[in-house]
Design a binder for these strands. Structure first.
Lengths: 230, 230
DNA sequence: ATAAGGCCGTGCATTAAGTCACGGCCGGAT
DNA sequence: ATCCGGCCGTGACTTAATGCACGGCCTTAT
């Protein structure tokens, strides 16, 4: 099936979920893998499509979103290199619940259900790896539910800005980075309207906590931002 | 470890997750199972406690809730007979993310991580069962995220009331049932304040869609309730 | 250059939901 | 029976967040 099984297994090896597999295992998975190169804007699948395998991003960016009949959408996750999606729905043999759209030109690996199931039968270690992966996802999703249900918009934004800041001691530290996606997409991910998100960033900036220039954000004082209260 | 391994395996057999296991497998799991009888009000574990196994409800009712430092809480799930919880956190070897409180006198089976892991190594079929279980949970949780982020309070209530109504044809059908828990708990589960929930039920009732008497709810016309629009 | 389109910020009006306060009711314990 | 305490309903008010409208700006392609 694959045009170049060798490169498929090379990509697979570098994905967190498939790390620590031995070469034989990777080879078997690679045989059930298809490489999908897709430019920004491509819809990989829509809510309701049949699911017959899982997906992993080698490079690029994919947006997973819930959609409503009347055109509304809520971004559930933004998947970057090394990330995977669609496992749950593959195990359940149900149609996709979300729609996947490529945001930045991507190489997505598609691993068939048959290959995954065969490998589970072959290797308990692999099964545990998949279990850990799903558990991880579940854990993060409950974090989202928590943010959605008992935090304010501003708290969610602060939480996001500090997502990978070490919980370091006192003393004003400054960190600068670029948002990985357009603000509109991020707003939806954080369950805010574009307008509301814009206002929140503005407010945090005029409180002297952050500095925003286009997509670059400088956190002026990490501990003070972390200590933000309504 | 168990006082009566025979009854443990009897209970296990009747849980959806462990159904279809052969007697030998059940026996092995039962050996790693502890029966916990707990009256209403018991806290089984709190957010932050160490997790070393999973839990399954034989009878009774358990509430899983997120808690905030300042005493707030959001009910994530109400687990009844046959339901299980704590798997994800067990696989990740992380502390519990939610707090579990017994709502109605319960028998909860606690299965140690060791027993689960051993059985995964023993049986790929069991591994697939666990994968399906976690996938199921993930699926439902995304449903919650969807309800939380793109539905109004009333829509969530309507969705809940219709949760297990067959999507049958036209013609006014009537269904009556009792809420499984106190309205305050249900309100939190649906991410509403008690007051808001109360008003919503009132409004639906005065629109002639439902009839509420204490904990009993009669849906007067299922299709019309389903067709409810803001 | 310049045009065209997507993305973003902001003022104003509106609304869904939350908060506070109070009073009634129901069910279990004495 | 009667008392008590938890659970629930409701009115008045506040607030966080949304929706709409518009205008600027910064790409990207021509």
């Amino acid at each position: 099936m694959p045009a170049s099984p060798i490169s498929a297994s090379d990509f697979l090896r570098n994905l967190p979920i498939f790390r620590e597999l031995d070469p034989a295992q990777l080879e078997r998975l690679a045989a059930g893998t298809r490489e999908v190169r897709a430019p920004a804007g491509t819809i990989l699948f829509r809510r309701g499509d049949l699911a017959t395998g899982m997906h992993a991003v080698a490079y690029g960016q994919v947006k997973l979103a819930l959609t409503t009949p009347d055109g509304g959408e809520k971004v559930v996750e933004i998947v970057g290199p090394g990330g995977s999606f669609g496992e749950a729905v593959m195990f359940l043999e149900k149609p996709y619940y979300v729609t996947a759209e490529v945001l930045a030109d991507a190489l997505v690996l598609y691993v068939s259900r048959a290959a995954i199931f065969a490998e589970i039968d072959e290797s308990p270690q692999f099964a545990r790896r998949m279990l850990a992966g799903l558990s991880m996802r579940l854990h993060r999703l409950i974090g989202d539910v928590e943010a959605l249900s008992l935090k304010s918009g501003t708290e969610r934004v602060v939480g996001y800005l500090l997502r990978d800041c070490p919980d370091s001691g006192p003393g004003a530290q400054t960190i600068e980075f670029r948002l990985p996606v357009a603000k509109g997409v991020l707003a939806s991910r954080l369950n805010l309207t574009r307008e509301h998100f814009s206002r929140i960033l503005h407010d945090l900036a005029s409180a002297g906590l952050i500095r925003v220039v286009g997509r670059s954000i400088r956190i002026i004082d990490v501990p003070r931002l972390r200590a933000w209260r309504p």
